[in-house]
């Protein structure tokens, strides 16, 4: 659930853990989000195309994974925060029927810019780490 109160920079400490987010991966999510990100590459909506590449079914596109990195951190930080960057390393694909659990922890703070670095990891219950990386988010000095 979205936090509608924005965290202030001073409220956050290195080592803080974010509330985990569970995402049920379905064909609808994979294909719907591929289309919502305007990614019509066949492997994200056409099962035979995914199978031709050696996977059993359609799989989540990168733009969606990147979107979940951002959503996960703004759910925690609140609406007045500002995402400044996402670095994303891709691992095992997300397929229909999997459940991805996203977790995160504050890794660094920069007092000058008010930017907080959050390490994020999305792990699916079948093949392990789907995504890992860092989201940089600017928080207001005062809430």
């Amino acid at each position: 659930m979205m936090n509608t109160q924005t965290l202030a920079y001073g409220d956050v400490a290195v080592g803080d853990k974010l509330p985990p987010l569970k995402i049920d991966i379905t064909s609808g999510l994979i294909t719907g989000a591929a289309i919502a990100t305007r990614d019509f590459t066949p492997v994200h909506h056409e099962k035979w195309a995914a199978q031709a590449g050696g996977l059993p079914d359609v799989f989540m596109n990168i733009l969606t994974s990147n979107g979940f990195m951002g959503r996960f951190v703004t759910d925690w930080a609140g609406p007045d925060s500002t995402i400044k960057g996402v670095s994303l390393k891709l691992g095992a694909p997300n397929l229909p029927g999997f459940v991805m659990t996203v977790t995160g922890e504050v890794k660094a703070k920069d007092d000058y810019s008010g930017i907080v670095e959050v390490a994020v990891e999305g792990e699916n219950n079948v093949w392990g780490t789907h995504m890992s990386g860092t989201v940089k988010i600017e928080l207001p000095k005062e809430a």
């Binding site: 509608t4 719907g32 919502a36 959503r71 703004t74 759910d75 609406p79």
Partner: peptide, 23 residues
């Protein structure tokens, strides 16, 4: 996009809220 990704951040979709926010 927000609908599919389940992103409920009101500054993306709620014009009234966004107007009054820092955005």
């Amino acid at each position: 996009y927000c609908e599919v990704l389940g992103d409920e951040n009101p500054v993306y979709t709620d014009a009234g809220f966004a107007e009054k926010s820092s955005k």
